[in-house]
Design a protein around this nucleic acid. Structure first.
Lengths: 208, 208
DNA sequence: GCCGTACCGTAACGTACGGTACGGTGAGGA
DNA sequence: TCCTCACCGTACCGTACGTTACGGTACGGC
């Protein structure tokens, strides 16, 4: 019986986690060209086991994405004392986190494979990546923004739109360039600089 | 002898253009799953001709991208009388154009296939898409921005960064969501609204 | 008329890879 | 000791598709 990977309460065993780690590494290296045989070889498991656990190739890819999503902790920002200073620091910290995740090898690889499958895809890889990436991020920052609004520090109609704008100010063309293979190196320093700039601009636009 | 598709002076004949149009349509419909047989069938040409003209599958994909790039006219904006009003209208018009192109089926399909091939790609599809998309756009808007700066209407250090910010304000998460298959419908009205908002915010940030 | 060129349509080849089958091995349990 | 179970390794199957080969047609030049 195939594991119901689609269910949200998917808890891989230790061994399954090892296999998924190996598969993820291959996915980062080879992209969508990873083969079931290569995964089996790398993870020292049999193809039969792969198919037993994950159903088919699509199921394996889906499991990889969910596995990674379960591992990466979303940046949780909760300013204790809300004032202009702490709000700015919260937003900027969130931005640093988001940008460093989005520009990482793993995020790029997962987005690439999900995009490759979008359009002709019944497993909904793109949807999963969106839910665990872009949308989850919005859910994390929006409370902060709304708290800032309630405290009279920010002004906006809908938090969704405000987050979208912050996302745009932060990411700009970085993600699409990385996805397209542009050799853009985003060091720690550059990430901090970009997050600071985006925060500055965001508060300039939405601050009261 | 294979045509040197890589050269910038690639001028397809009328017949070749028809074949590339058919291939482009298939690419939009089927994405990267398009096959040489399907192209030959749809274009009513022989596979032998495809290989003679384009070398191999990669060459065909490259030719499709270049063909589309040669067809789409970049929005050229040149405000004759430069004042705050005309500058704003120029930027906003450019934004409308850019957003409607980026959210179109063809752009999404081409970006998807280029992203699929990025990382393990000898033909540099991603580079070509970047050159003819994102970078070409920057080259078009930057003179306008610099003219605005010279006229004392805008203030920024480097035009590249300013364009990046406008790009981010305009596109936000639209492109990545479309690439990931999110069923986002961006009508004419929404495009105009977004372009107006982005322009407003950009001038608010960079206006003097 | 004959040749070369360019092209169409189709058949065929080779291979990579998803998916399956099967024998072998080690652990736990009666 | 024997059975069962989960798993590994590997050989195998079927198919899709990139690529090549080849026969046939139209046409322009000599």
């Amino acid at each position: 019986m195939t594991l119901n990977i689609a269910s949200s309460d998917f808890l891989p065993t230790r061994r399954q986690g090892e296999v998924l780690d190996a598969a993820l590494q291959l996915l980062v290296e080879d992209g969508d060209r990873l083969t079931m045989s290569a995964v089996a070889r790398e993870a020292s498991c049999s193809k039969e086991t792969l198919y037993k656990w994950f159903g088919d190739r699509e199921g394996l890819l889906t499991a990889i994405v969910k596995w990674q999503a379960s591992k990466v902790g979303m940046p949780r920002v909760e300013p204790d004392k809300l004032n202009a200073q702490s709000l700015r620091k919260s937003i900027e910290s969130f931005g640093r986190n988001l940008l460093s995740v989005l520009s990482g090898d793993i995020s790029v690889a997962l987005n690439r494979v999900a995009i490759s499958h979008a359009g002709t895809d019944r497993s909904g890889l793109g949807r999963i990546v969106l839910e665990n990436g872009r949308f989850a991020m919005g859910q994390r920052l929006k409370p902060v923004l709304e708290a800032g609004r309630d405290a009279g520090l920010l002004g906006f109609e809908d938090a969704e739109g405000a987050f979208c704008t912050f996302f745009g100010l932060l990411v700009r063309d970085t993600q699409i360039r990385l996805l397209l293979g542009d050799d853009l190196v985003l060091g720690k320093q550059a990430i901090e600089r970009e997050a600071a700039r985006a925060t500055e601009q965001f508060i300039s636009l939405y601050g009261t």
